[in-house]
Design a protein around this nucleic acid. Sequence first.
DNA 1: CGGGCTACTGTGCACGTTCACAGAAGGGTG
DNA 2: CACCCTTCTGTGAACGTGCACAGTAGCCCG
Lengths: 334, 334
Amino acid sequence: MKRPTIHDVAAAAGVSRGTVSRLLNGDKYVSTGARLAIERAISATGYVVNRNARSLVTQKTGSVVMVLSEPQEKLFEDPNYSTTMRVATRLLAERDLSLVLMMAAGDGDRERVVRYVRGGHADGVLLLSTHAGDPMVDALVGGPVPAVSCGAVIGRESVIPYAAADERLGARQMTEYLLAQGRRRIAMITGPMDTPGGIQRLEGFTEVMGRRAGKKLIAHGDWTRASGERAMAELLARVPDLDAVFVASDLMAAGALAALRDQGRRVPQDVAVGGFDDSPVAVSTHPPLTTIRQPLTRVAEETVRLLLALIDGGAGPGAGPVILPTELVVRASA
Amino acid sequence: MKRPTIHDVAAAAGVSRGTVSRLLNGDKYVSTGARLAIERAISATGYVVNRNARSLVTQKTGSVVMVLSEPQEKLFEDPNYSTTMRVATRLLAERDLSLVLMMAAGDGDRERVVRYVRGGHADGVLLLSTHAGDPMVDALVGGPVPAVSCGAVIGRESVIPYAAADERLGARQMTEYLLAQGRRRIAMITGPMDTPGGIQRLEGFTEVMGRRAGKKLIAHGDWTRASGERAMAELLARVPDLDAVFVASDLMAAGALAALRDQGRRVPQDVAVGGFDDSPVAVSTHPPLTTIRQPLTRVAEETVRLLLALIDGGAGPGAGPVILPTELVVRASA
DNA sequence: CGGGCTACTGTGCACGTTCACAGAAGGGTG
DNA sequence: CACCCTTCTGTGAACGTGCACAGTAGCCCG
């Protein structure tokens, strides 16, 4: 009934605990005879090591905690989350690390996360879409447990390593494409200006547009579909003769499409629409969205690699951010 | 530098380990003086209990593992996953349990999960969308660690407790609504027939339609948008005069809408379309989908409750399934 | 005053592992 | 033969906690 211990395995194999432990931990000094006997004993007894006992002495927990900071509703629609989870579980599993999931919605949650990490229950922290000015970040970076972020943490770029898509580049690609299509009055709907995507996609846009990007041509959304619809209506009222709009997310672009349809504008004939993310929504709109694809999988991979390197190396040297290029995907909307 | 132990707290408070331990575990026999001294000592030293050491003696791990069985792509679009994660982390956090995430895509993954659970690394297992005939299930239910599922596991309903939406009811609601709207030639696009949603939504449909639900009127999809589009085209070729279609998921319904548009059918004038799930897609299609809302949050809550009861109670008595009612949401597509 | 009860406290052991150390066997070298 | 080096093995101690047990002090009651 009781689970077999390393002691049982040792007895069954006719060796001592030490030898079994050495085999388990890949020590080189184990004779072939002992190795065979132990392996047979392990499969005979169905032994698996007790992580708690191991952690107790090694001071390593064998787990990494992933902290989701987004307000609840967002979780539904962000492919970034699921990609990162999938990639993280896979990469961590290879190293026999497990992934613990925590939400950080309220202050209580954040405190719990800090207590958990400082309590030594994780070997590393993987932050997702942490907000600018989140006090949790500072509470985390002081300690002995390394933390990285998938996507930049605004205002803390130098203190917490991260991997991210080149948002600025993506925005430039889309804007240049719209210009190349002969569009001249190009508006933009941004994301919230306290998120990397909100800030940097706008930056890329203005870099290309220069002085042509007047205040009138810019409206702000909050990533939701409804906000995209609202912002589009606002832009149409302000600049009736616009002939293109770059929307900072596909979901908001879906909202923008609805607003354009309401006003009787044809897409792309009257107004070209460019999205961002290449999310599933992009192909289910009518017309399908021309958009910017982010290398989500690679971003997630690099983030995890960064964390693993930090866990291994103690103080990682090249903890500079990893920025990966985006790609223009042309469909019917522009 | 080293983290404080229960010993340090005891020394700082001038009592013994035992007394500190009693306070920590809510034992009643602790004098007020000792309590105060200990509490002060705890906050002075910044002590947090070492879970590993605790687990080692209590044989409880303080964590629950959530196993995701869906093939990778699906994860992107299924609101069920994120809802369950959110609810689970919240409910578990209340009890100081942490959530470990594991994917079970390939055989290697499944084996890893079984080893992890049988290795005593979790107090409970929360299965999500496990496939019919998955050998992992049988390997799990034998052991001492309780397992529950969010949504039925086909063929194992009696052996693994679950909470789920009343899929059959939802399908009946939609079918009856379409009939009430005067539709007579009602087709259906189902999900894969090895999933609860695939099977039971079809059952609800045929229960209401009776002999009117001929084989010709039924096509099968695999939950993807593309499969919905394909199935719709197939149905239109087979039954050109159909006047309504009940699609087993919103995403497939979005595909069906595209197919209908390609064939020049107007929705809802020529063909009424009913979806299922009330997912975000439902409001971004054109027209927005009339659909069936599942009580996802409550399903998730009940699933976690079931698991917690099992963890507490040893062998839970009323481990019967919890089935929750669905709700019709009327929009423009039907 | 003796005895039992209640409220509280301290101590030794066990949980299952890793790690440092000591030590043995065998072979090569001076 | 004496010595060292390499390869391999066993052993004791520690990691930080909970729990069973023994024990103490105060109080009430007979």
